[in-house]
Amino acid sequence: MTSYSIDDSGSNGNNDQQPDAGETIALPIILTNSGNTTASNVTATLSWSAKSYQTQSGSNATITIGTISSNFGNIAASGGTGNNNSSPFVFTINKDAFEISITPRPLTQFINFTLSIFVNGVAFSSKSFELQIAEPNLVKGENAVTGILAANTLNHQLTIKLYNNGLSTATGLTATLTTNNPLNITITDGTNIPYANIDGVNTATNSGINTSTFNFDIGSSNYSNETFNLIVTNQYGKTWTFNNFNLTIPVINAGSTINHNGYETSIELFWTLSTSATVKRYNLYRSLDNLTYTSTPINTNLINYSTYLDQGLQPFTTYYYKLTVVDMNGNESDYFPAAGYPASTSLNLHNGWPIVPTNLMGNRAEGSPNVYDV
């Protein structure tokens, strides 16, 4: 076997040449005859063997080979090649191939294949090789809803951000929203709401919101922590379910603080927040004039810890920051601090510096002789 290629350009694939959970893959292979006689009537079969955490057969099989044999014709001697392009091997990866008992959830798996080669119907040789498969793995993010959730109000529009923590692009996404409190919440648009494709976690844009909104009305009572459920489905029928989330905005309490360390081209921010809800993660917004802030967070993914290093900044420049918390339901708080938090980078550093001074008052800023008296 000289080479193979991944063809996922069919209706059950996304044409990225990466085998993904749920896809059907065509596998063209090239064979080379290095002998001194023609290999006549060359055929081959494809098989695979499951690892300990994979399923070999049945409805839950990790993969299913649909076309197990292929014809390569006659292959000339001394470097002649043959291929099965007209009838490639075909296999399908289970959409739930990554629903396995391994913690943490793996980003990839390897499938062990064996190619058995026959000449004129007689077993000639075999070749083992591995293919790496991946999956999209969606996680629910922030909710954003329009209007005050008061009694007898109509047409509240809801967007829900999804993050893709897998390596494969999530394609053909639709979502359905339901409520656990239908006596007071009426969902008017909530079925098969589309999302654009969401790239994998190794890209700069691994998140997205629904391209048309979920819409709902509120009945005779004010909204009071009524809960919703979201089911997301991709083009292969894989589903992700996010149950029992509410739309109550968390509050950042008085006494919360934010501080920083300033460096030449970066600012390290850290904070201690008291909130009304269990904090899941954070978002950070930035401004140069404390008037116009970034419309989306400067962090690509939600911040997991109470610190963030903002890099690629200009030396000796003041920036302004506002922080939000995102609770376990995906609800984002108002900005903190409301007036913005100023933080500055330092001047350009000279060779041999910084020397960090002691007995500082206030926030530390590492500098060089043009900042400190020495």
Rank of each mutant, 00 (worst) to 15 (best):
175 A>M: 05
140 K>P: 04
270 F>S: 14
149 L>C: 07
104 P>M: 06
279 V>F: 01
228 F>D: 13
190 G>A: 06
102 I>E: 13
58 G>C: 06
164 N>C: 07
273 L>P: 03
20 D>H: 05
348 N>F: 09
179 T>Q: 03
96 D>I: 01
292 T>W: 04
82 G>H: 05
310 D>G: 02
17 Q>A: 14
316 F>M: 11
284 L>D: 09
92 T>A: 11
284 L>W: 08
22 G>A: 05
172 G>H: 00
62 T>I: 03
304 N>F: 04
90 V>Q: 11
239 T>C: 08
16 D>C: 08
202 N>G: 03
120 N>G: 14
64 T>S: 05
26 A>N: 14
97 A>N: 03
236 Y>G: 02
13 G>R: 00
18 Q>W: 06
108 T>K: 13
147 G>R: 12
27 L>M: 03
333 S>H: 10
59 S>F: 03
152 N>G: 00
211 T>W: 01
365 A>E: 15
135 E>S: 11
103 T>R: 12
106 P>Q: 10
5 S>C: 02
191 T>I: 15
307 T>V: 09
75 I>C: 01
23 E>R: 01
353 W>H: 12
326 V>A: 07
109 Q>N: 09
212 S>N: 14
225 N>Y: 13
260 H>W: 12
374 V>P: 04
168 S>H: 02
146 T>H: 08
211 T>G: 04
290 N>P: 00
343 A>D: 09
120 N>A: 07
220 S>P: 03
47 S>L: 07
355 I>L: 14
112 N>C: 01
295 S>I: 08
21 A>L: 02
91 F>T: 00
130 E>L: 12
73 G>W: 01
341 Y>N: 09
109 Q>F: 12
44 A>F: 06
310 D>H: 05
206 N>I: 05
191 T>A: 10
39 A>M: 14
214 F>V: 08
238 K>Q: 15
165 N>D: 12
82 G>C: 05
314 Q>R: 12
30 I>R: 01
115 L>D: 07
282 Y>D: 08
127 K>T: 13
246 N>I: 01
326 V>W: 06
